[in-house]
Amino acid sequence: MEILNLDRLSKNYGKIQALNQVSFSVPKGSVFGILGPNGSGKTTLLGIIMDILKSSGGSFTLFDEVPTEKTRQRIGTLLETPNFYHYLSAVQNLKIVAAIKQKDESDIERVLEIVNLIQRKDSAFSTYSLGMKQRLAIAAALLGNPEVLVLDEPTNGLDPVGIAEIRALIMKLANEGKTIIMASHMLDEVEKVCTHVAILKYGQLITHGDVNEILVNEDVVEVSSNNLEQLKKILIQFPGNVNVYLKENTVQVNFQPGTANLEEINKYCFERSVVLSHLQLKKKSLESKFLELTN
């Protein structure tokens, strides 16, 4: 079963195309990261799915059904900012959420325990710090133990301990078999927890699929000699390379992770009468891979 299926979803704000015919599917049980720089359309996409924004074109299904308010009740959602009644306490706010979701109020204590807000459960929301507000929003999303979670920048405003806690919580929920759809621009967050990823840029879907295929950390070998063009020409023939290109007086040769062999490269070049003046193995960072995809 597909939890979410997008079919050419589009959204315009006047002349600005926030989403342009985006199509992908979220399989059941996956932790699906929606990646993209600021303004790429991540929140717009989730806003349409949760019916707070109207799409300009295309369609989508949730749980293989045309979405209704009943399907949204099966999803725990944290979208953009924590939205609560400022004058009410955490418990009073969660009672409203439970009533709308048609879940039992007895679950409120459990979710407040999970996000470490039990000590401040009777304090007004307006007295909370940004991190506490974010924790309460996560508690609201967890209420009723939903099978699907939609989390937009879930670690926003949290301190390093909070970030680690929420990351661990997401991993735990994923291990329980829940489907998690998570929008983020924090790459290490996505790398650590996601099984699938979709990358957006200016509302366009750049790529999507298994995170190990999309955001693979390639080995990069940096080589140099007195004739870079000739060096590049012979390295293109080197077996196992993924990509060869010139960069700042060096030739960069990309390999699948763990497959670069410096000795072989040196020998290969020497046998073809090219003496290397520089030879270094580098790990390609996730950031550079992301930048490569989005630039």
Binding site: I52, R72, Q73, N83, F84, Y85, I100, Q102
Partner: peptide
């Protein structure tokens, strides 16, 4: 207007109300 200021109008829909409700 509080519902719009606090963005709870959005949250009510997200949590499972229809816009008509």
């Amino acid at each position: 207007t509080n519902e719009f200021a606090f963005k709870t109008s959005r949250q009510n829909i997200i949590d499972g109300w229809s816009r008509l409700q």
